[in-house]
């Protein structure tokens, strides 16, 4: 019984550390997703570019209710990467400029 009690006592600080670790990992996940839900990302991906006319780029990531909507530079890069249409046919830099 005493051994079991010691084990429980020893387990308490270990669990606290585990919780800290989990909190940090959770914070990392939140940071990488920009606080957006799956549905919100679908909205985001659907509006990741803009029209030449000027009525464009409805970057409308709706963050969690009650928080200020926020789009970061990293959000834009992620959306751009996901909407990549493949390697374009375009003029090479070497056709225009010399290094």
């Amino acid at each position: 019984m005493e051994a079991a009690a010691n084990l429980r006592r020893e387990g308490v600080p270990a669990m606290r550390i585990d919780r800290i670790g989990l909190l940090l990992i959770g914070a990392a996940l939140v940071a990488t997703t920009g606080c957006a839900t799956g549905e919100e990302w679908a909205t985001w991906r659907g509006h990741s570019s803009h029209f030449a006319s000027g009525s464009h780029m409805g970057f409308s990531v709706r963050n969690r209710e009650g928080t200020q909507a926020r789009v970061t530079r990293q959000d834009i890069q992620v959306a751009r990467d996901q909407n990549w249409w493949g390697k374009p046919i375009t003029v090479s830099q070497e056709q225009i400029l010399e290094r």
Partner: peptide, 23 residues
């Protein structure tokens, strides 16, 4: 200043987008 933009999206599988460019 070199500017490029999408001229044409891929219209079929396997096609590549075409960019227009001005230097």
């Amino acid at each position: 200043v070199i500017l490029e933009w999408l001229k044409q999206m891929p219209r079929a599988q396997g096609e590549r987008p075409v960019h227009e460019t001005i230097a």
